[in-house]
Design a protein around this nucleic acid. Structure first.
Length: 492
RNA sequence: CGGGGUGUAGCGUAGUCCGGUAUCGCGCCACAUUUGGGAUGUGGAGGUCGUCAGUUCGAAUCUGGCCACCCCGACCA
């Protein structure tokens, strides 16, 4: 167990890395750009999956699984999508190794085992899925198709960061097919709402919902919706995207259906996804210089009980009490870990569970037994209280709810403080450099201006917020007329 | 792919200029004493010094090639 976490104000990215590694969430693997998600990190991801999966099912979706490999000819069918991902694709060219005749014990790629057609390791699955949907859809009676898959994908990134950007990552991708444009757009918006609901109410991370500009749009989409979150260092993080794909994939893969009126029509499509990147958002939204902070609704362990004893008899009594509390809390669906390891002292355990982000710690000592109390410490604000044993269960139940909402309110207040409206390019640059955060500014709506602003400031348009206030103004860069302010930020 | 840096025990390091078989801390193992915020003592295990070749009686140290990783840029959920 390492002891020092870099302070946030000293070096924010180092702090982030320290948290990920020292809180046992993930590690660099010996595969370049790929990480090992460790049990503690994976447990949090599993909780995210469970909640999201239920939300998907509740909105009528079902799960399925499609292949990891996509033949190049299928991959290239939707041109824009293919072009967008071409630069970061892993490609399988051979299917066999053989022993090296010149170097005993070593293997080489068998040059005679070259594939007729290369296989692309999926960076996303639209191509293989729409190729499949072609066979599933004949009539309007086959629609809609509402399928999700949990999978890994590979995008050959040049620079990687644990959870935020790795060459391989885990995600879910929903792929739906609809009879009408309206229905597909409704689906796209519905899933954006699902994501916003999850990220705000389970992860306790406030988001701005919006649409991407043409530059930032998913390759192959007509419209990309997104949720944007703001991290503690004032940088934005895209937390989820939902795409209205129009008829682009239906046309590329020739997926038509027969209407009631016996007419042939192309199918309308959506796709939407969130990834293990959410882990990064979770970490960077709440954690502090003592380590990770996990919102109760996603914490693998809600409460840890630490015994403090002087004698064996004392320990036995504490253990009895701990087990009673544990069982009572279990009735309330609160998961409890009794940390009775005898090789570590209480102070060490306190620090360790803080580092790993357990929301509530209960310490029980022999003094408590005499007084009929326990000490309860909350992770979010590091405060402690002495609570009577008789009311411990109801107290903790309420405390977990408090912590969840406190984390959200805290993050929300921070986001509000780090949101600025500006009217000139000077103000814009100054805000980005000195204050950071979300910056609202007028933009003339052209990709050229967006590109110039990005080149000069490294800030991108994160989104055009939904239900955005319409107000006449002039673009901060070009001085041309604008109808609304859009959301800029430097981003991960 | 460009520019910079680093490779010595599980982790962090000293030693490299000036060649003589590797230092310290954390962690690990055993035992004892401890336990209300990261315990202490005693004993112990653990290293082809990134890799390959060269120079030398002798290389962590000098020379050359290669490899890996990190940081900065171009790219990106």
């Amino acid at each position: 167990m390492a002891q020092g976490i870099t302070k946030r104000e000293e070096d924010y990215s180092k702090w982030y890395n320290d948290i990920v590694v020292q809180a046992d969430l993930a590690d660099h693997s010996s595969v370049r750009g790929c990480m090992v998600i460790k049990p503690h990190g994976y447990a949090i991801w599993e909780n995210m999956q469970h909640v999201l999966d239920k939300m998907f099912k509740d909105t009528g979706h079902v799960n399925a699984y499609f292949p990891l490999f996509i033949p190049k000819s299928l991959f290239e069918a939707e041109e824009k999508n293919a072009e967008g991902f071409a630069k970061e694709c892993a490609v399988v060219t051979h299917y066999r190794l053989k022993t090296d005749p010149k170097n005993a014990g070593k293997l080489i790629v068998d040059p005679e085992a070259k594939l007729e057609e290369e296989l692309i390791v999926r960076p996303t699955s639209e191509a293989i899925i729409w190729n499949t949907y072609k066979g599933w859809i004949e009539s309007y009676r086959d629609l809609p198709i509402l399928v999700n898959q949990w999978a890994n994908v590979v995008r050959w990134e040049m620079r990687t960061r644990l959870f935020l950007r790795t060459s391989e990552f885990l995600w879910q991708e929903g792929h739906t097919a609809h009879a009408t444009k309206e229905e597909a757009i409704e689906e796209t918006e519905k899933m954006l709402e699902v994501y916003a609901d999850f990220v705000e109410n389970w992860m306790a991370v406030p988001v701005v919902k919006g649409k991407k500009t043409a530059n930032e749009r998913f390759a192959g989409a007509d419209e990309t919706y997104c949720i944007e979150a703001l991290m503690q260092d004032g940088k934005a993080l895209q937390a989820g995207t939902s795409h209205f794909l129009g008829q682009n994939f239906a046309k590329a893969f020739d997926v038509k259906y027969v209407t009631k009126e016996n007419k042939q029509e192309y199918v309308w499509a959506t796709s939407w996804g969130v990834s293990t990147r959410l882990m990064g958002a979770l970490i960077m939204s709440h954690s502090d210089d003592n380590g990770l902070i996990i919102p109760p609704k996603l914490a693998p362990t809600h409460v840890v009980i630490v015994p403090i004893h002087k004698t064996e008899e004392g320990l036995a009594k504490i253990t009895d009490l701990a087990n009673t509390i544990k069982n009572n809390l279990k009735q309330k669906n609160i998961s409890v870990k009794y940390d009775n390891r005898d090789s570590y002292r209480p102070g060490f355990k306190f620090a360790e569970h803080e580092l790993k982000g357990v929301p509530v710690r209960v310490a029980i000592g022999e003094r408590d037994l005499a007084n009929g109390t326990v000490e309860v410490a909350r992770r979010d604000n590091l405060t402690k209280e002495v609570i009577s044993i008789s009311e411990i269960e109801t107290y903790i139940e309420k405390l977990l709810v408090d912590i969840q909402s406190n984390l959200f309110e805290r993050a929300k207040a921070r986001q509000a403080n780090l949101t600025t409206h500006v009217n000139t390019f000077e103000e814009f640059k100054k805000t980005l450099d000195e204050k950071t955060g979300f910056v609202y500014a007028h933009w003339d709506g052209t990709p050229e201006t967006e590109e110039k602003i990005k080149e000069e400031t490294k800030a991108t348009i994160r989104c055009i917020p939904l239900n955005n206030l319409q107000e006449a103004g002039v673009c901060i860069y070009s001085g041309k007329p604008s109808t609304q302010k859009v959301l800029f930020a430097r981003a991960y």
